[in-house]
């Protein structure tokens, strides 16, 4: 008897991939930003606001907090359960998806994810001193990488695997573009006295992508905007570059049935990326470009969603269900708010 991957299973695996990746990205982002601030002069306009903007949830943040200080922003990003994109929520949804995938992914993988979830609750719940936060976030990053390594070495590299990877890379490409965006937005066009620190800013962008060493090896130039952009957008060897992510998406899709539309959408984005004149971008035009990237990624996500998960024309308005919550809330967040 032939076996077909259920749409619902594929969807859970895809979201598992996204939430794991998002967890790691959030952890890394907060750590690196705190580091960067230590290197900058005290009275400067750059504070924690960009962290809120990266996640595209300015409105939610402002409705919950009065002040954009370190404590509030860190709390918002890490353990505020009212923020659907907070690290602890990402972990919770990763675990929830993994739980419903038992019997499909190795038991061990569920156990690791469960452990990570418990670890997050124990070590990143409130209240959080800076020291504990730094240690906790670095542990989470490592933990996720261990899980991803385990999955890569132990899952059958079949359709399930490809959905997991697609979740990883959509999320990753999205995050890379957001980090670049913040690198441009707030600093470069602001006060003149910060100009000397521009390179520090790009360095921090590379750091948050864990790519400083790779940059040095691969680019062999001092850190400066043009080269960094080229590297982060288009280096096919850098696993966190947009091009690498798109190539991975393309490979996964090619291995799946009914991929025509999704593949077309990925290829379209890939062409735009390859023909972009990155060296001419800066300030507002760079911002517009990253914005377009995010829109195109959202489009790729939509096509994947429609091709594999939600393709049946519904005969009645979508019903709410307890299980639907596993993905719906954040899915909405992803499609719209972000």
């Amino acid at each position: 008897m032939s076996h077909h991957t259920l749409s619902s299973t594929a969807k859970r695996i895809y979201w598992l991939g996204r939430y794991l990746e998002r967890t790691e990205n959030t952890a890394r982002l907060v750590s690196v930003h705190a580091n960067l601030l230590m290197d900058l002069p005290k009275r400067m306009p750059l504070g924690w606001r960009p962290m809120v903007d990266i996640t595209g949830s300015r409105t939610l943040f402002d409705s919950l907090y009065d002040d954009t200080n370190e404590n509030n922003v860190a709390r918002f990003l890490i353990n505020d359960i009212r923020h659907p994109g907070s690290l602890l929520n990402s972990l919770k949804w990763a675990r929830e998806n993994a739980r419903t995938l038992r019997g499909i992914i190795p038991n061990q993988a569920f156990e690791y994810i469960n452990e990570l979830h418990l670890f997050g609750r124990e070590h990143l719940g409130e209240p959080l001193s800076r020291t504990r936060r730094v240690a906790g976030l670095s542990d989470v990053t490592e933990f996720v990488q261990r899980i991803e390594g385990f999955m890569s070495a132990n899952l059958l590299h079949d359709a399930h695997w490809n959905f997991l990877r697609m979740g990883n890379f959509i999320e990753r490409a999205d995050m890379t573009s957001r980090i670049i965006d913040v690198g441009t937005d707030n600093l470069l066009e602001s006060a003149v006295e910060l100009a000397p620190f521009a390179d520090i800013q790009w360095r921090s962008v590379l750091l948050s992508l864990n790519a400083v060493q790779s940059y040095n090896i691969s680019v062999q130039e001092p850190i400066q905007q043009g080269a960094v952009l080229e590297f982060l957008f288009r280096d096919p060897r850098l696993p966190r570059s947009l091009l690498y992510s798109l190539n991975s998406l393309r490979n996964s899709l090619r291995a799946l049935p009914r991929h025509e539309k999704a593949l077309r959408s990925v290829n379209r984005m890939r062409r735009h990326l390859q023909h972009a004149e990155l060296h001419l971008l800066g300030g507002e035009t760079l911002h517009t470009f990253t914005d377009t990237c995010q829109k195109e990624l959202a489009e790729v996500h939509d096509v994947i969603n429609r091709s594999y998960f939600e393709f049946t024309p519904r005969r009645r308005p979508q019903r709410k269900s307890a299980r639907g919550g596993i993905k719906n809330r954040s899915e909405r967040l992803n499609a719209k708010e972000r």
């Binding site: 991957t5 259920l6 393709f311 049946t312």
Partner: peptide
């Protein structure tokens, strides 16, 4: 899902 033809289908990544 039950189709207009009254058959029952599973939603899979390969279609119904």
């Amino acid at each position: 899902v039950v189709g207009a033809d009254d058959y029952v289908y599973t939603r899979t990544i390969e279609g119904l």
